[in-house]
Amino acid sequence: MAANRLRTGHPVPGLPFTDDERLPLDHPDASGRTGRDQGEGLRGRTDPLPGGGWVPDHGRTVVLITDGSGGGLHHDRLYGHTGVLYRHGGYRCDGTTWHRPGMVFDGAYERYAVRPVQDAHTVTAADLLVHPAGPGRAQAAAVAGFNGHQTALPDWRAHLALWAGHRRRAADPRPLEECAVDLKAPEPEPSRLVDRAGPAKIANMPEEELPHPRYAHRDLPEPQARGAGGPLRSPSAARDRATSRPAHTGLPTGRPAHRNPYARSVLRVRGRRTFALQTDARRPRPMPTPARPR
Rank of each mutant, 00 (worst) to 15 (best):
A276R: 12
A185I: 11
L153V: 03
P284W: 12
P221I: 03
R259H: 10
R174E: 03
G52F: 09
T243Q: 05
V117D: 00
G107W: 14
M103P: 01
G70D: 15
L220C: 08
A170D: 09
A257L: 14
R45I: 10
A141Q: 04
A203P: 07
A276C: 06
P206Y: 06
G53P: 00
P284G: 00
G9Q: 11
P223L: 01
H27C: 09
A281I: 02
R43Y: 12
A161M: 00
P288T: 13
V84I: 15
P261K: 06
G71W: 14
R60A: 15
Q118M: 09
W156D: 03
A142V: 15
V63G: 09
I65A: 15
D20C: 08
Y109F: 11
A144D: 13
Q224N: 14
P213F: 05
T97E: 04
P132W: 12
P13Y: 10
A164Y: 08
L15Y: 12
R100Q: 08
R174K: 02
T97M: 07
D127Q: 05
V62E: 11
G83V: 03
T34G: 01
L267H: 07
S265C: 05
R259D: 13
A170K: 02
G59K: 03
L183S: 11
H58Q: 09
R259I: 08
D76E: 14
D47E: 13
L49F: 08
R245N: 13
F105A: 08
Y91T: 01
T66Q: 10
P175Q: 06
H258G: 00
T274P: 00
D19C: 15
L183H: 07
D29G: 12
E208Q: 15
G41W: 02
A200W: 02
R239I: 07
H166Y: 07
T122S: 06
P288H: 14
G90S: 05
T249Y: 07
I202W: 10
T151N: 10
T46L: 10
A247R: 13
D106Y: 03
A237H: 03
G70T: 11
D94N: 00
S236I: 11
P231M: 04
G32H: 08
A257R: 13
R5M: 14
L232M: 05
A171M: 09
L128H: 05
A247Y: 15
F146L: 03
P213Q: 08
D29A: 14
S234C: 10
A126P: 09
R157V: 09
P11D: 10
A276L: 12
R43C: 05
H99E: 08
C93A: 05
Q38I: 12
D57H: 13
P11I: 11
G9M: 08
R33V: 00
L73G: 14
T82S: 15
G254L: 06
D67Y: 12
P231H: 02
L128V: 04
M103S: 02
P13Q: 11
R196Y: 11
L162D: 01
D280R: 12
V104C: 01
W163F: 04
R292V: 07
G250V: 02
T151C: 09
R226L: 09
E177A: 15
Y112E: 03
A216V: 10
L232F: 04
P284F: 11
P211K: 04
R294P: 13
N4A: 06
T243A: 09
T8E: 03
P11Y: 07
D76M: 14
L183G: 10
Q150G: 10
G32M: 01
Y91N: 01
G32L: 00
T274F: 15
T34C: 10
T274H: 14
L220D: 03
